[in-house]
Amino acid sequence: MAPDHVTRRAVLQGGGAAMALPGVAGAETGAMLSPESNRGRDMSTVEFTVNGDRVQLQLDPRTTLLDALREHLQLTGTKKGCDHGQCGACTVLVEGQRINSCLTLAVMHEGDSVTTIEGLGTPKNLHPMQRAFVTHDGYQCGYCTPGQICSAVAVLGEIEAGIPSHATEDLEHVVLSDAELRERMSGNICRCAAYPNIIAAIREVAAGDEA
Protein backbone atom coordinates (compact mmCIF):
# COMPACT_ATOMS: atom_id res chain seq x y z
CA MET A 1 0.00 0.00 0.00
CA ALA A 2 1.19 3.45 -0.77
CA PRO A 3 2.90 5.23 2.06
CA ASP A 4 0.56 8.18 1.80
CA HIS A 5 -2.30 5.91 2.72
CA VAL A 6 -0.51 4.89 5.89
CA THR A 7 0.13 8.52 6.65
CA ARG A 8 -3.47 9.45 6.18
CA ARG A 9 -4.62 6.76 8.53
CA ALA A 10 -2.19 7.95 11.12
CA VAL A 11 -3.39 11.50 10.72
CA LEU A 12 -6.96 10.42 10.96
CA GLN A 13 -6.49 8.34 13.99
CA GLY A 14 -4.60 11.08 15.69
CA GLY A 15 -6.84 13.84 14.52
CA GLY A 16 -10.14 12.96 16.07
CA ALA A 17 -13.52 13.22 14.51
CA ALA A 18 -14.91 15.14 11.60
CA MET A 19 -11.74 16.68 10.34
CA ALA A 20 -11.57 18.07 6.90
CA LEU A 21 -9.09 16.34 4.68
CA PRO A 22 -7.82 18.77 2.14
CA GLY A 23 -5.28 16.21 1.05
CA VAL A 24 -7.82 13.70 -0.07
CA ALA A 25 -9.70 15.10 -2.99
CA GLY A 26 -8.51 18.62 -3.23
CA ALA A 27 -4.81 18.24 -3.33
CA GLU A 28 -4.30 14.79 -4.74
CA THR A 29 -6.37 15.03 -7.83
CA GLY A 30 -6.83 18.73 -7.84
CA ALA A 31 -3.25 19.86 -7.86
CA MET A 32 -2.73 19.11 -11.51
CA LEU A 33 -5.92 20.62 -12.79
CA SER A 34 -5.91 22.34 -16.07
CA PRO A 35 -6.86 26.00 -15.87
CA GLU A 36 -10.10 25.53 -17.73
CA SER A 37 -11.28 22.89 -15.30
CA ASN A 38 -14.30 23.84 -13.33
CA ARG A 39 -13.90 21.06 -10.84
CA GLY A 40 -15.10 22.50 -7.60
CA ARG A 41 -18.01 24.24 -9.19
CA ASP A 42 -20.55 21.65 -8.20
CA MET A 43 -18.76 19.73 -5.54
CA SER A 44 -20.57 18.13 -2.64
CA THR A 45 -19.18 17.42 0.75
CA VAL A 46 -19.75 14.04 2.26
CA GLU A 47 -18.52 12.57 5.46
CA PHE A 48 -18.59 8.92 6.38
CA THR A 49 -16.57 6.31 8.15
CA VAL A 50 -14.36 3.94 6.23
CA ASN A 51 -12.84 1.03 8.10
CA GLY A 52 -13.24 2.90 11.34
CA ASP A 53 -11.76 6.17 10.13
CA ARG A 54 -13.92 9.20 9.58
CA VAL A 55 -13.29 10.84 6.26
CA GLN A 56 -14.63 13.97 4.68
CA LEU A 57 -14.54 14.28 0.94
CA GLN A 58 -15.30 17.01 -1.54
CA LEU A 59 -16.78 15.11 -4.42
CA ASP A 60 -18.40 15.53 -7.75
CA PRO A 61 -21.92 14.24 -7.02
CA ARG A 62 -21.48 11.81 -9.90
CA THR A 63 -18.82 9.92 -7.96
CA THR A 64 -19.89 6.45 -6.99
CA LEU A 65 -18.98 5.04 -3.63
CA LEU A 66 -16.68 2.69 -5.56
CA ASP A 67 -14.77 5.50 -7.22
CA ALA A 68 -14.66 7.49 -3.99
CA LEU A 69 -12.93 4.52 -2.40
CA ARG A 70 -10.63 3.65 -5.28
CA GLU A 71 -9.75 7.04 -6.70
CA HIS A 72 -10.15 9.48 -3.83
CA LEU A 73 -9.29 7.41 -0.79
CA GLN A 74 -6.94 5.21 -2.80
CA LEU A 75 -8.47 2.13 -1.23
CA THR A 76 -8.06 0.05 -4.36
CA GLY A 77 -8.85 -3.28 -2.74
CA THR A 78 -12.45 -2.82 -3.82
CA LYS A 79 -12.52 -3.71 -7.50
CA LYS A 80 -14.32 -2.39 -10.53
CA GLY A 81 -15.28 -5.35 -12.67
CA CYS A 82 -18.30 -4.06 -14.56
CA ASP A 83 -19.44 -0.78 -12.94
CA HIS A 84 -23.04 -1.87 -13.57
CA GLY A 85 -23.98 -4.26 -10.78
CA GLN A 86 -23.40 -7.31 -12.92
CA CYS A 87 -20.38 -8.94 -11.28
CA GLY A 88 -20.05 -8.23 -7.55
CA ALA A 89 -16.34 -7.32 -7.58
CA CYS A 90 -17.13 -3.99 -5.91
CA THR A 91 -18.93 -5.50 -2.93
CA VAL A 92 -18.40 -3.63 0.33
CA LEU A 93 -20.23 -3.59 3.63
CA VAL A 94 -22.26 -0.48 4.42
CA GLU A 95 -23.75 -0.44 7.88
CA GLY A 96 -22.92 -4.13 7.96
CA GLN A 97 -24.85 -4.95 4.79
CA ARG A 98 -23.19 -5.96 1.56
CA ILE A 99 -23.92 -3.80 -1.45
CA ASN A 100 -22.47 -3.12 -4.86
CA SER A 101 -20.49 0.06 -4.34
CA CYS A 102 -20.61 0.79 -8.09
CA LEU A 103 -24.36 1.41 -8.03
CA THR A 104 -24.55 3.93 -5.26
CA LEU A 105 -23.39 7.53 -5.09
CA ALA A 106 -20.87 8.46 -2.46
CA VAL A 107 -22.92 11.52 -1.51
CA MET A 108 -25.77 9.23 -0.55
CA HIS A 109 -23.71 7.78 2.28
CA GLU A 110 -23.46 10.72 4.62
CA GLY A 111 -22.80 9.39 8.08
CA ASP A 112 -22.60 5.77 7.00
CA SER A 113 -20.05 3.26 8.13
CA VAL A 114 -18.29 1.50 5.27
CA THR A 115 -16.10 -1.57 5.57
CA THR A 116 -13.89 -2.56 2.68
CA ILE A 117 -11.52 -5.46 2.24
CA GLU A 118 -8.77 -3.33 3.75
CA GLY A 119 -10.86 -3.05 6.89
CA LEU A 120 -11.18 -6.78 7.36
CA GLY A 121 -7.52 -7.63 7.66
CA THR A 122 -4.01 -7.03 6.47
CA PRO A 123 -1.45 -9.40 4.97
CA LYS A 124 0.14 -9.83 8.37
CA ASN A 125 -3.14 -9.96 10.24
CA LEU A 126 -5.67 -11.74 8.08
CA HIS A 127 -9.37 -11.92 8.85
CA PRO A 128 -10.45 -15.56 9.32
CA MET A 129 -12.29 -15.41 5.98
CA GLN A 130 -9.19 -14.07 4.23
CA ARG A 131 -7.10 -16.82 5.79
CA ALA A 132 -9.60 -19.46 4.73
CA PHE A 133 -9.52 -18.17 1.15
CA VAL A 134 -5.74 -18.63 1.13
CA THR A 135 -5.95 -22.09 2.69
CA HIS A 136 -8.61 -23.29 0.25
CA ASP A 137 -7.23 -21.51 -2.81
CA GLY A 138 -10.49 -19.61 -3.07
CA TYR A 139 -9.22 -17.37 -5.85
CA GLN A 140 -6.94 -17.37 -8.84
CA CYS A 141 -6.38 -14.03 -10.52
CA GLY A 142 -7.49 -12.28 -7.33
CA TYR A 143 -9.61 -9.61 -8.94
CA CYS A 144 -13.02 -10.72 -7.73
CA THR A 145 -11.55 -11.86 -4.43
CA PRO A 146 -12.10 -8.82 -2.19
CA GLY A 147 -15.72 -8.74 -3.28
CA GLN A 148 -16.10 -12.47 -2.69
CA ILE A 149 -14.65 -12.13 0.80
CA CYS A 150 -16.79 -9.14 1.76
CA SER A 151 -19.81 -10.97 0.43
CA ALA A 152 -18.89 -14.17 2.26
CA VAL A 153 -18.58 -12.36 5.58
CA ALA A 154 -21.99 -10.80 5.05
CA VAL A 155 -23.57 -14.07 3.91
CA LEU A 156 -22.78 -15.78 7.18
CA GLY A 157 -24.41 -12.88 8.97
CA GLU A 158 -27.48 -13.10 6.77
CA ILE A 159 -27.88 -16.79 7.45
CA GLU A 160 -27.36 -16.17 11.15
CA ALA A 161 -30.08 -13.52 11.01
CA GLY A 162 -32.46 -15.97 9.39
CA ILE A 163 -32.80 -14.10 6.11
CA PRO A 164 -34.05 -16.57 3.52
CA SER A 165 -32.70 -17.05 0.01
CA HIS A 166 -33.87 -18.55 -3.26
CA ALA A 167 -32.31 -21.82 -2.08
CA THR A 168 -34.19 -21.87 1.21
CA GLU A 169 -36.66 -24.75 1.17
CA ASP A 170 -38.77 -23.60 4.10
CA LEU A 171 -38.95 -19.83 4.31
CA GLU A 172 -39.38 -20.06 8.06
CA HIS A 173 -36.25 -22.13 8.65
CA VAL A 174 -32.96 -20.95 7.27
CA VAL A 175 -30.14 -23.41 7.66
CA LEU A 176 -26.60 -23.23 6.41
CA SER A 177 -25.88 -25.60 3.55
CA ASP A 178 -23.71 -25.68 0.47
CA ALA A 179 -26.74 -24.95 -1.66
CA GLU A 180 -27.50 -21.89 0.47
CA LEU A 181 -23.95 -20.65 0.21
CA ARG A 182 -23.84 -21.15 -3.55
CA GLU A 183 -27.07 -19.29 -4.10
CA ARG A 184 -26.16 -16.44 -1.79
CA MET A 185 -22.71 -16.05 -3.31
CA SER A 186 -24.05 -16.01 -6.87
CA GLY A 187 -23.86 -12.23 -7.07
CA ASN A 188 -20.08 -12.54 -7.04
CA ILE A 189 -18.83 -13.83 -10.35
CA CYS A 190 -15.43 -15.51 -10.49
CA ARG A 191 -14.43 -16.14 -14.08
CA CYS A 192 -11.43 -18.16 -12.91
CA ALA A 193 -14.17 -20.16 -11.19
CA ALA A 194 -12.72 -20.94 -7.82
CA TYR A 195 -16.31 -21.58 -6.79
CA PRO A 196 -16.00 -24.89 -4.89
CA ASN A 197 -12.90 -23.60 -3.11
CA ILE A 198 -14.69 -20.44 -2.06
CA ILE A 199 -17.58 -22.47 -0.68
CA ALA A 200 -15.10 -24.66 1.20
CA ALA A 201 -13.48 -21.56 2.69
CA ILE A 202 -16.81 -20.13 3.83
CA ARG A 203 -17.84 -23.48 5.26
CA GLU A 204 -14.64 -23.62 7.28
CA VAL A 205 -15.18 -20.15 8.71
CA ALA A 206 -18.81 -20.98 9.49
CA ALA A 207 -17.73 -24.12 11.32
CA GLY A 208 -15.15 -22.11 13.25
CA ASP A 209 -17.79 -19.57 14.22
CA GLU A 210 -19.98 -22.27 15.65
CA ALA A 211 -17.17 -23.89 17.58
Binding site: T76, I117, E118, P123, Q130, F133, V134, D137, Y139, G142
Partner: peptide
Protein backbone atom coordinates in the same frame (compact mmCIF):
# COMPACT_ATOMS: atom_id res chain seq x y z
CA UNK B 1 1.44 -24.96 -1.45
CA UNK B 2 -0.74 -22.00 -0.63
CA UNK B 3 -0.09 -19.24 -3.13
CA UNK B 4 2.66 -16.92 -2.00
CA UNK B 5 0.72 -14.01 -3.49
CA UNK B 6 -2.37 -15.07 -1.55
CA UNK B 7 -2.15 -12.61 1.36
CA UNK B 8 -1.81 -9.70 -1.06
CA UNK B 9 -4.80 -10.85 -3.09
CA UNK B 10 -7.16 -11.56 -0.20
CA UNK B 11 -6.43 -8.21 1.43
CA UNK B 12 -6.82 -6.18 -1.75
CA UNK B 13 -3.26 -4.96 -1.54
CA UNK B 14 -2.05 -6.54 -4.78
CA UNK B 15 -1.91 -3.61 -7.23
CA UNK B 16 -3.61 -4.05 -10.59
CA UNK B 17 -3.02 -1.87 -13.63
CA UNK B 18 -5.55 0.87 -12.90
CA UNK B 19 -4.55 1.15 -9.27
CA UNK B 20 -1.04 2.56 -9.46
CA UNK B 21 -1.48 5.61 -7.31
CA UNK B 22 1.95 4.66 -5.99
CA UNK B 23 3.75 4.65 -9.32
CA UNK B 24 1.82 7.23 -11.32
CA UNK B 25 0.16 9.62 -8.92
CA UNK B 26 -2.30 12.15 -10.27
CA UNK B 27 -2.93 10.23 -13.44
CA UNK B 28 -5.60 11.79 -15.61
Amino acid sequence: HDRIDGPAKVTGTAPYAYERHDAAPQAA
